[in-house]
Design a protein around this nucleic acid. Structure first.
Lengths: 120, 120
DNA sequence: CCAAACCATTTCAGTTGCGAAACGAATATG
DNA sequence: CATATTCGTTTCGCAACTGAAATGGTTTGG
């Protein structure tokens, strides 16, 4: 038995959080976009387009477009690397932090419900 | 303090699972599609188009299209309700069960990693 | 100091998704 | 019966995303 999270409980946690997220009328990000956002915020910098593309195993243009979307949303910003101006460094914003914080609340709440409902 | 899952741990769990999901070369489902799939498998039947649309707070055509995609993928199937032939009952398939089982593994594995990495 | 290598972006053609409105089929209501 | 209502689906125009290939800047190396 896994210690923290059985298979069904994990799925139900994911379901509750995902349904809550879908029901929200906000900017609905694709899986890639959200994965990118989370990677930038939870993984040690610096973050370049090439590095992110490798990490997510998608093409570079896909990262560029996801950055367009996320920076247009205000969740991320680009900064040219001063030491090598070919590089673009992806950085966090206050707005992105707030958004992810709300998303974390949503997940933890869903986890609480899943425990309460499916529990022993 | 939340008992099972702190905010940062929840985000990191989500990140790991989502990145793993994005990296996999499989059918990449949208958030809606996955939410629909999970709802059908983890919520008591019967499931109609109208009911699912209300549950996810999206339009009926959106559900129809998601069903097209998911049944084309073999994860779900439609069956006309014999007692009221206007209704469409959405049902599970073996293939969908297998897919969700693999997805659950992915989440539990990510949960284990998140505990191991970020833990005390 | 000029060419090669590298980085991110843009362009291109094609796919997929969306909401609103119109639609045919099935059931309920008078 | 005829009409209204309720299903799910289809059509329409439009927006967003995809990978591959081409482009414009920047840095490195001979």
């Amino acid at each position: 038995m896994p210690p923290g999270l059985s298979g069904t409980a994990a799925l139900d946690l994911w379901r509750r959080a995902l349904v809550a997220s879908v029901r929200r009328d906000g900017p609905d990000l694709s899986a890639r976009q959200l994965a990118l956002l989370l990677t930038v915020y939870l993984t040690p910098p610096p973050h370049t387009v090439r590095g992110l593309a490798a990490h997510l195993a998608v093409s570079k243009p896909a990262i560029t477009r996801a950055l367009d979307r996320l920076s247009q949303e205000g969740f991320l910003k680009r900064k040219i690397d001063p030491s090598d101006r070919r590089n673009v460094l992806v950085q966090r914003t206050v707005r992105g932090s707030v958004h992810l914080s709300e998303f974390a609340d949503l997940v933890t709440r869903s986890a609480g419900e899943a425990m309460g409902a499916g529990g022993p």
